[in-house]
Amino acid sequence: MIGELAHRALLLELRCFPKPGLVSHIDSGSHQDMDAACFEASAAAIRPFLSALACAGHEGADMPALRVIGMAAERAMMAATGGVNTHRGAIFGLGLLCAAAGVATERGPAHLGDVVAARWGDAIRGGPVPPRSHGTTALRRYGIGGAREQAAKGFPLLYAHGLPAWREGCRLGGGDDEAARLHCFFALMAVLPDTTLLHRGGMEGLLFAQGQARRFLDAGGVGRPGWRQDARAMHRLFVERSLSGGGCADMLAMTLFVAMVEDLPRGAASIAATDMMIDTVGSGG
């Protein structure tokens, strides 16, 4: 069940338009080397490993054991996509949350972020650093810790901004689940030090993206007329600048997963509302 929910969260993130600059079921955004079919193949390939991470968490695995599973998931992703990195960040962050959910099956309901920080936080901080990752480059060049820092602390931005924005989006969107997801996405983009944005646009690109997201939210987010047109215009701006917030997309999927697991009544309603969309062609934007 945990692997299934994680897989659904990845599809819900993908089939959400417009996320400025990002791949969706509508277009490929700022990306020339990937599309929705590529992401769907990747999500299907890593699904068994997300389940394996949940089982490993349930069995009390340490971080090196989780890392072995994560590396196997990356190899499966690369094989499915022809060498394109679609979900490396999600394998790390969502994978840790799956492992934490596996722990929670033994102990009962839990704050998954707290489980990650308590059980694996020190090992995440002290673990091996990939020499060529966007996160490593951002830490070296800008002093920004990225996904590793968020994970070691128990994903504080997810809980402080992602989940509240998703709940607010559910209210503002009036039952439009895609609107709720987009509201959550913009709230995360406004605050997340996204290393993909830093890689593509430097500090100027990151600050531009965060400013655009804050402007969208300050104007009322998805609770005002014309918000979709505004979001589409922002999407075009990001494509012109070749900007893409991959870390924000990963965090959106992680927020949706946490909502399904921790906020069960509302999360279950969200799953029910989107089952048909996942099985067919998406919400249409």
Results as ranks from 00 to 15, higher is better:
residue 48 P to H: 14
residue 3 G to S: 08
residue 1 M to Q: 11
residue 57 G to P: 03
residue 109 P to R: 05
residue 59 E to Y: 01
residue 127 G to V: 09
residue 52 A to Q: 15
residue 112 L to R: 07
residue 156 P to A: 07
residue 203 M to I: 14
residue 50 L to E: 13
residue 194 D to K: 05
residue 88 R to H: 14
residue 33 D to H: 03
residue 60 G to D: 04
residue 122 D to M: 06
residue 238 F to Y: 14
residue 65 A to G: 10
residue 60 G to L: 10
residue 11 L to A: 06
residue 237 L to W: 01
residue 53 L to F: 10
residue 150 Q to F: 01
residue 127 G to F: 06
residue 73 A to H: 09
residue 124 I to C: 02
residue 256 L to R: 07
residue 6 A to F: 03
residue 145 G to T: 11
residue 124 I to D: 00
residue 234 M to S: 13
residue 145 G to S: 09
residue 222 V to F: 00
residue 176 D to E: 15
residue 88 R to S: 09
residue 7 H to P: 01
residue 142 Y to L: 07
residue 25 H to D: 15
residue 130 P to Y: 14
residue 227 W to N: 07
residue 283 S to I: 05
residue 17 F to C: 07
residue 71 M to V: 14
residue 241 R to I: 09
residue 111 H to L: 09
residue 148 R to Y: 02
residue 115 V to Y: 01
residue 40 E to L: 11
residue 20 P to T: 12
residue 5 L to F: 15
residue 228 R to W: 00
residue 208 F to V: 04
residue 174 G to T: 15
residue 229 Q to L: 08
residue 274 T to E: 02
residue 264 L to D: 07
residue 270 S to P: 00
residue 92 F to D: 12
residue 238 F to T: 11
residue 18 P to L: 11
residue 137 T to I: 12
residue 42 S to V: 14
residue 41 A to V: 03
residue 72 A to K: 13
residue 36 A to Q: 08
residue 159 Y to E: 01
residue 37 A to R: 14
residue 53 L to K: 06
residue 24 S to V: 13
residue 167 R to F: 09
residue 237 L to K: 08
residue 47 R to C: 05
residue 114 D to S: 08
residue 218 D to I: 06
residue 162 G to Q: 07
residue 154 G to Q: 06
residue 70 G to S: 06
residue 121 G to N: 10
residue 37 A to W: 14
residue 216 F to P: 03
residue 79 A to Y: 04
residue 106 E to F: 00
residue 237 L to R: 15
residue 281 V to T: 12
residue 59 E to P: 00
residue 99 A to L: 10
residue 21 G to H: 10
residue 179 A to G: 05
residue 195 T to N: 02
residue 214 R to S: 11
residue 65 A to R: 15
residue 147 A to W: 01
residue 229 Q to H: 10
residue 204 E to N: 10
residue 14 L to I: 07
residue 129 V to F: 00
residue 263 D to W: 11
residue 77 M to G: 13
residue 132 R to D: 14
residue 95 G to D: 12
residue 34 M to I: 10
residue 156 P to S: 05
residue 131 P to D: 09
residue 10 L to A: 07
residue 208 F to H: 13
residue 162 G to R: 03
residue 116 V to P: 00
residue 18 P to F: 06
residue 232 R to C: 13
residue 215 R to P: 00
residue 197 L to Y: 07
residue 78 M to V: 02
residue 131 P to T: 14
residue 69 I to E: 01
residue 149 E to K: 10
residue 207 L to F: 04
residue 14 L to K: 05
residue 35 D to L: 03
residue 20 P to I: 14
residue 97 L to P: 02
residue 114 D to R: 09
residue 109 P to S: 03
residue 262 E to Y: 08
residue 192 L to Q: 05
residue 73 A to T: 12
residue 154 G to C: 03
residue 204 E to M: 02
residue 236 R to V: 15
residue 144 I to T: 04
residue 237 L to Q: 15
residue 163 L to W: 04
residue 200 R to H: 10
residue 30 S to D: 09
residue 285 G to T: 13
residue 150 Q to V: 08
residue 162 G to W: 13
residue 30 S to F: 02
residue 169 G to A: 14
residue 95 G to C: 04
residue 76 A to P: 01
residue 80 A to L: 06
residue 42 S to P: 05
residue 114 D to C: 01
residue 249 A to W: 06
residue 163 L to K: 05
residue 272 A to C: 03
residue 268 A to I: 00
residue 203 M to R: 15
residue 160 A to K: 13
residue 211 G to N: 08
residue 71 M to F: 00
residue 164 P to I: 13
residue 7 H to E: 14
residue 14 L to F: 02
residue 134 H to D: 15
residue 95 G to I: 05
